Simulated assay, not measured.
Amino acid sequence: MIRAFVALQPPEAVVGALVAAQAGLPEGRPVARENLHLTVAFLGEHAGPVIEDVHYALSAIRLPRFDLSLRGLDLPGGDRAKVLAAGVDPEPKLRLLRDKVLQAARGAGIDFPRERYLPHVTLARFNAGLRGEAAERMRAFVLDGAGFRTEPFEVAGFALWRSHLGRSGPIYEALAEYPLAGGRAEGEGP
């Protein structure tokens, strides 16, 4: 079985900004630099042939490149938060990419639960959630990081990833990369 997801890999300058945002983290386990990514869709665990079918379906996606920027820190779930996340500026083209990825994966036989998509980059994890003073320290950390923002960066492609779970945390392996079309979509300007 292969535990897989589709994600965007931020450019090195953005990864550097994300690592800097982790500095002084009062609680939790920071996500390793090489694991920082923006999940487009979590596929779950499937047999190799299913993931291969997903690969071929993802290869058929044709969309133009687009720009994204990250901003602010958040504890999704409030007091029940299990992660610290960097938010993503709203971008309809990211939603379109997600819709196309879900459509491709469904066509390969993967079912998805109905859930709200909140694009983010996970910066830290809290195994047991946050309570008491730990929650207070993290809320203060999030308030201090409210001004976090990256310059817009071009999303030139996405990738299919495999997650190997282990005691010291996950190890991610890129299985395939899918470029987005160069240039801008028709009627978008320069």
Results as ranks from 00 to 15, higher is better:
residue 143 L to G: 03
residue 16 G to S: 09
residue 125 R to F: 05
residue 142 V to Y: 03
residue 100 K to N: 09
residue 177 E to G: 15
residue 85 A to D: 03
residue 154 E to H: 11
residue 132 G to I: 06
residue 177 E to T: 14
residue 81 A to G: 01
residue 169 G to I: 01
residue 2 I to E: 12
residue 62 R to H: 12
residue 92 P to C: 01
residue 47 A to V: 12
residue 24 G to R: 15
residue 140 A to P: 02
residue 40 V to D: 01
residue 80 R to D: 04
residue 168 S to F: 11
residue 134 A to F: 06
residue 179 P to I: 03
residue 155 V to L: 13
residue 70 L to S: 08
residue 185 A to Y: 08
residue 63 L to Q: 13
residue 15 V to Y: 07
residue 112 F to M: 08
residue 70 L to M: 11
residue 38 L to C: 03
residue 60 A to E: 09
residue 32 A to Y: 04
residue 91 E to Y: 08
residue 171 I to Y: 01
residue 12 E to N: 12
residue 65 R to D: 00
residue 131 R to T: 13
residue 68 L to M: 01
residue 83 V to L: 12
residue 147 G to M: 08
residue 177 E to Y: 08
residue 86 A to Q: 10
residue 147 G to T: 05
residue 171 I to G: 02
residue 30 P to G: 04
residue 98 R to F: 02
residue 80 R to H: 09
residue 51 I to L: 15
residue 179 P to V: 04
residue 147 G to N: 10
residue 100 K to L: 14
residue 168 S to Y: 08
residue 41 A to S: 07
residue 127 N to P: 09
residue 19 V to C: 08
residue 48 G to R: 09
residue 141 F to P: 01
residue 175 L to A: 01
residue 22 Q to S: 07
residue 185 A to C: 10
residue 157 G to D: 06
residue 137 R to S: 08
residue 134 A to G: 12
residue 33 R to Q: 12
residue 167 R to P: 15
residue 86 A to G: 13
residue 1 M to N: 07
residue 121 V to H: 03
residue 73 L to V: 04
residue 86 A to E: 07
residue 135 A to I: 04
residue 145 G to W: 01
residue 190 P to G: 13
residue 15 V to M: 11
